[in-house]
Simulated scan of single mutants.
Amino acid sequence: MNSPDLHASMSPTRPIRPTRLPGPAGPVILALFAAAVLVDLGSLLLGAETGHRIAKPLLMPLLAAYTAVRGGPRLLVCALLLGWGGDVFLLSDADWAFLVGMGSFAVGHVCYLVLFGRGGTPRWLGPLYAVLLVAALVLLWPGLPAELRVPVAAYATLLTVMAWRAAVVGPLAAAGGALFLVSDLIIAIDVAEMPQPPATDFWIMFLYSMGQLLLMLGLLARHRTRRSG
């Protein structure tokens, strides 16, 4: 006979019990995340590739650790760690690594969509994101390598839906989804070999890091509100 408690404990959206660590673990982890972001961005501006390769893989595990310490949903930890997988694979210039990294991010977006749940978004937001998606694909399509066109289009659609649905959670998550989308759009512009903005890698990582941070904070804030209610 299956126990309801057993099923609940296996649920990916079940909160994680806050880890009992000595001292203010949450603020310390966020401080480490901020330090890793600064090292990563500084390394990109200075052209210090080693610093970037060391700092970048630390970002999402630190956010995942913060989520766990704060007793956040397990699925949020999974989404962040899937982002870490994407980060690691995208450190390589190989096409296969790009596809695997994009796939890891895509599964992370699915996790986010499950976390967002049901609920309405502003009526104008869906059409706005739809227009942005179509315009981006029309502009990027000719410059994309033939073997990447379909995967990039599928990923872009999923990412756009994630950014749109993030508004269900609240302003923080909505802003995080939008920043994540812009970050990946810059990557797609690079892949399509279109004109790049100055300090491209810097802006990609800045927007991505802030996007993931805001998504996490928005989901944790809603989670705390629901638990207290």
Rank of each mutant, 00 (worst) to 15 (best):
A65F: 03
V150A: 15
L158P: 09
L113H: 02
W124D: 11
A31N: 02
A221L: 14
L90W: 10
L75E: 06
L185K: 00
P22D: 05
S92H: 12
A55F: 09
I204K: 10
A135D: 13
H7L: 10
L62R: 00
L213S: 01
L128V: 11
L219P: 00
W96P: 03
Y155T: 10
P171R: 13
M1V: 08
V107W: 09
L30I: 05
R20C: 03
L81H: 00
L82T: 06
L215V: 11
A106E: 11
G176T: 12
P22H: 05
A153L: 14
R74T: 04
A136F: 11
P12E: 01
W96Q: 10
P61C: 02
I187P: 14
R222N: 09
T200H: 11
S43M: 04
R20D: 11
L214A: 03
R118D: 12
R227Y: 04
T160N: 01
D93Y: 07
A154N: 07
G71W: 01
G177W: 11
A130Q: 12
N2R: 14
A178G: 13
I16F: 03
L99N: 07
V169M: 13
L181K: 01
F202N: 13
V69P: 06
M10H: 14
A163E: 09
L128C: 10
V182Y: 07
L80G: 00
L125R: 15
L62K: 00
F33T: 07
P61D: 02
G103K: 05
A156R: 12
L41D: 08
F33P: 06
V138G: 13
A55H: 07
P142N: 15
A79R: 01
L213Q: 00
G47L: 07
G83H: 03
W164L: 14
V107S: 04
